[in-house]
Design a protein around this nucleic acid. Structure first.
Lengths: 260, 260
DNA sequence: GAGTCGTTTCGGCCCCTGCCGAACCGTGCC
DNA sequence: GGCACGGTTCGGCAGGGGCCGAAACGACTC
């Protein structure tokens, strides 16, 4: 089943070299780093972000997908691409940590599930400004158009706990969930879930929390609602969010969510 | 401090790409795999093992050292080279596991020996000499600085069975385990488990057995003890080990391990 | 001092690969 | 239907990097 073994390039039968070669190109590495936010990017977005021609990006993406690092999702004339699994995210994260901190520190983090210190994306903060920004983003931020960070994860888990969203063979909004949304006057776009439309609810790997939060039309609607009703507001121009006093009350009443 | 950032090659400022490029060459990858036995090899030995000219090997080694993956130790006309740190070994192990098992399995937990087809490390043996070497290594060998092969797996399971190591939310040495270590006069390095130090115990997927053995500071201490007390000794120049008669008795008495 | 051996440096070869622009294709919108 | 747009394929170009052999260097041996 794994076709990552039949790579076009000849690495003299070294799977290690073949895998490393995928990440050894600055453009492909930039793609992977960008995708570490857990979002799905289109080919064009990645091309622009990395500063290469669309044709170049297309070829790189094909190689990364063939190598099993990325998975694609073609919708209309768009090609959405994301990291293939949390394992890929872990791998890239580990390599980045090593590359930036050197052989001593890397690997000191406890493996897997044990309770390690929250790992930060990107380079370790070198300035106070950078550190506070990262801390704010870990608390609450937008991920494309939905909520992420500790807040996003907490909301996702609350929805699952209360049976508003189910996780049987894929995420879905339950009957109760639809009723709850109507009651709260939160509207999903009409074409959501229809063929060609946006998926209703999607799980999105949360980089800072190592857990998933909710994306898709539902995630977007929740985020839009939270902004519209001033439950959260943006801090500066980045992705970081602040929960307002009103928002704290609303989230607690509606979902039992406590924001730290 | 890190001069791995100033690599001669221009990777457009991507530390990730620069690091991956070091492993993206089959010859360098072969060097690193060979060095995973934790020993110091000379430049010539590595050249022969990888089947390249000494001049080629010399250049590769210089790049690996400049990149922080290897450290060197020049003695007379020999250039001994080894992995720079346990973190490097972990990194290469993780990459190899991912490259050989694909994005799903990587990052698996110790107990998670899914029922996959038994995958062999390199190519099937083509000569008798090669076959006996593989057989010896499957029985007992070093994996960087700890025990692997059937012996390593048996020791790991014995420690778990006897409650000296627990597997609740990550591997850890229990109270009884610490007492047992003290009783056996096996010492862990003082900084083990501290922030920035090496993890005390970590699981390491054993590719000959498809099960996990124990690495980390505990794995290293056990292996060092076994060698110091002549429970095991090296066979030839590879990573294969032989259990001595004394070692067989000791392992049976202390852990109930029977070596086949 | 001559010879051997492990290693390094240098020059040169060649393939591989990343890049782009141009042309092409399919989708979606007006 | 016409047009805009995102993505892909192809040809061609240029640079990088891996490989070797020859020669040089230094260490150890006799």
């Amino acid at each position: 089943m794994p076709d990552h073994e039949r790579l076009p390039v000849d690495h003299r039968g070294s799977p290690l070299a073949a895998l490393a070669a995928l990440l050894a190109d600055p453009t492909r590495a930039a793609f992977c780093s960008a995708l570490l936010d857990g979002r799905a990017w289109t080919a064009g977005e990645l091309a622009r972000a990395a500063g290469v021609a669309p044709s170049t990006a297309s070829e790189h993406l094909s190689r990364l997908i063939a190598g099993g690092l990325l998975s694609e999702d073609r919708q209309g004339r768009h090609r959405y691409v994301r990291l293939a699994s949390p394992a890929v995210a872990t791998l890239i994260e580990d390599l980045t940590v090593f590359a930036e901190t050197g052989p001593e520190a890397a690997g000191a983090t406890p493996g897997g599930s044990s309770a390690g210190p929250a790992r930060r994306p990107g380079p370790a903060p070198r300035t106070l400004r950078e550190a506070t920004r990262q801390s704010a983003e870990a608390r609450a931020r937008t991920c494309y158009d939905h909520l992420a960070g500790r807040l996003g994860v907490a909301v996702a888990e609350a929805l699952l706990d209360r049976g508003l969203v189910s996780d049987h063979a894929g995420l879905a909004v339950t009957e109760r969930g639809h009723a709850w949304l109507a009651e709260q006057r939160i509207e999903l776009p009409p074409r959501a879930g229809r063929p060609g439309g946006r998926p209703v609810v999607r799980s999105c790997l949360d980089w800072t929390e190592r857990r998933s939060h909710l994306g898709g039309a539902l995630g977007a609607a929740l985020c839009r609602t939270a902004l519209d009703r001033s439950w959260v507001e943006r801090i500066g121009s980045g992705r970081a969010l602040r929960v307002t006093p009103d928002g704290g009350r609303a989230l607690h009443e509606l979902l039992g969510v406590e924001v730290s």
